[in-house]
Structure formats: C-alpha cells, structure tokens
C-alpha cells in the first residue's frame, strides 16, 4: 500500500441521483505517469475532484498518498484547465507561481527571499525564467500552461494532477508541455486527464479509461476504446477511425520518434 500514490476502491458517485461513477477501482504506483482518458461527461473531472477531496464518494474509499483526501488534503500539485481565467487579470508570471505557496504574498510586503528563489527555480524548470516579470495575460496559451505547471511544482508535491492540459494550446505548446512532463517522470507521480487519446499516448506508463466505469492497464486495449467510444459496425466511419487509432497507439514510442 505504501508504494501506491493513489488507491481508489469501488467508488461510486452521483449528481442529483444521476450516476457518474459506478464501482470505480484505480491503483497508481508512485512514480507512474498515468493517462486518464474519457469522453466529455464520462466522469474524468468528477474523479479528479474526488482525488482532490473536493467531493465525497457515495460509496467506496479513496487514498491519495496514503491519506483520505477529504479528511486530510494530500500534498498534490493541481493544474486545472486554463480557459477559466479572466483575460486581463493584473498579475505577473512570478506572482502566479507564488500562489502555489500559500501565505507568501501579502498586500504590503514582497515575498520572502526563499519563496522568490523557489519561484525562479521552478520557472527555470519549465523554461520560463526570463518571463518572470511579464504579465500573465500577455503569454501564449502554451506559455501559460507552463507557468501553471510551475505553480503546481513550487510546493514540491509528490503527485501532479493535470486536467486537460493540452486543450486550447497549439501543437508546439503541446510538444513543450510533454517535454516538461517527460522530465518529471519517475521523480513524481503524474496523472494526466484528457479526452484526447493521441495526446495522452506520449510518454505514459499507465492508462485508465473512464466512462462511468473504469478500465486500467499498461496500454490502451480494444476494450478500453470500446468503453470510450462504444461498439460500431464495420461500415461506420468511427470504426475506421478506431482501427487507425489502435494502430497508432500500439507503439507510441515509435510514433513519437
């Protein structure tokens, strides 16, 4: 159990009587890089909220880093989707990163020297140190996402949760982000939530697909694709797409090269 970063046992959850998760099991080892894939409405965000302790399961148990996330919020770095931010919010890149260290920013005083140094260090890790004094709203989508990764990393968490990190960023931004995530492998457990199977294929060690139920494995299987997309006739265009997808996902390392 101690080698498990996440342990979800038979968890169910419903919003207003509508089941969103039904008997979900998930085990993520420390140092793993898990892609959690599912369609919109499949329960991805609900599971993330359960892992963060923002929701309480109707049944079952959840342990994150050995703790019940509702009772004792674990040391988790969280990167939400960036699309929700006010477009012209007056804040610098450095101050966004410092939000990951509660109690370090006051109205009247500058952050402590150690906090400022930590912010500089994590910004270097995501290759954004040169833009520390820039306003966040002047950055591109990919740069913003790297800053949010730095904000999640500044508290040196043992687990990183990414919610749709590649939505709203260009292909170049995606490549940069996955480079950063690859650099984190083994030093930290990463859970990457995505509806995009192709994006999630880059650099992962474990896969879980979710659509009310959850299937987990080392790689994507036809059963997992069936859980996400359903079963289709040979003549259906989606069937052709799924076959191509299966071929692409068979050897992700080769495809990335």
């Amino acid at each position: 159990m101690t080698d498990m970063a996440i342990s979800v046992e038979n968890v169910s959850f419903a919003y207003d009587g509508d089941d969103v998760l039904d008997g979900v099991n998930l085990r993520v080892e420390k140092g793993a890089f898990l892609a959690l894939i599912g369609p919109n409405g499949g329960g991805k965000t609900t599971l993330v909220k359960l892992l963060l302790g923002l929701l309480r399961p109707r049944q079952g148990s959840i342990k994150v880093l050995g703790k019940d996330p509702v009772q004792d919020p674990p040391d988790v770095g969280y990167v939400p989707q960036h699309a929700a931010f006010a477009p012209s919010f007056p804040i610098t890149v450095r101050d966004v990163v410092l939000l990951g260290l509660p109690g370090q920013k006051s109205f009247c005083f500058q952050p402590s020297t150690s906090a400022a140094a930590s912010a500089g260090s994590v910004l270097s890790r995501v290759d954004m140190a040169g833009l520390a004094e820039r306003r966040f709203d002047t950055l591109s989508g990919g740069q913003r996402q790297r800053v949010l990764v730095a904000r999640a990393l500044i508290s040196s968490p043992s687990l990183l949760l990414f919610d749709e990190p590649t939505s709203n960023i260009d292909p170049q931004g995606k490549i940069c982000l996955f480079d950063i995530l690859s650099g984190l492998r083994r030093s930290i457990t990463v859970v990457l939530v995505s509806h995009d199977v192709i994006s999630a294929a880059a650099g992962i060690t474990d896969v879980a697909v979710i659509n009310k139920r959850l299937l987990q494995g080392r790689e994507i299987t036809p059963e997992m694709l069936e859980l996400i997309y359903g079963v289709h006739e040979d003549s259906c265009p989606l069937d052709g797409y799924l076959k191509t997808l299966s071929a692409v996902l068979e050897k992700p390392e080769q495809n990335r090269a």
Partner: peptide
C-alpha cells in the same frame, strides 16, 4: 482584511478551482 487575506483573495479571484484544491 486585505492585509491578512490578500493572497487568499488573489488566489480566489485568479483561479477559484485551484484555490479550492489548495484547501482555501
């Protein structure tokens, strides 16, 4: 209130979901 709660208000205003995940 601002002096003692500035970062909390900043976090709430900038990204409420992250603030909630931080346990604020």
């Amino acid at each position: 209130l601002l002096h003692f709660r500035y970062q909390e208000f900043l976090s709430l205003s900038f990204d409420m979901e992250f603030a909630r995940a931080q346990g604020l």
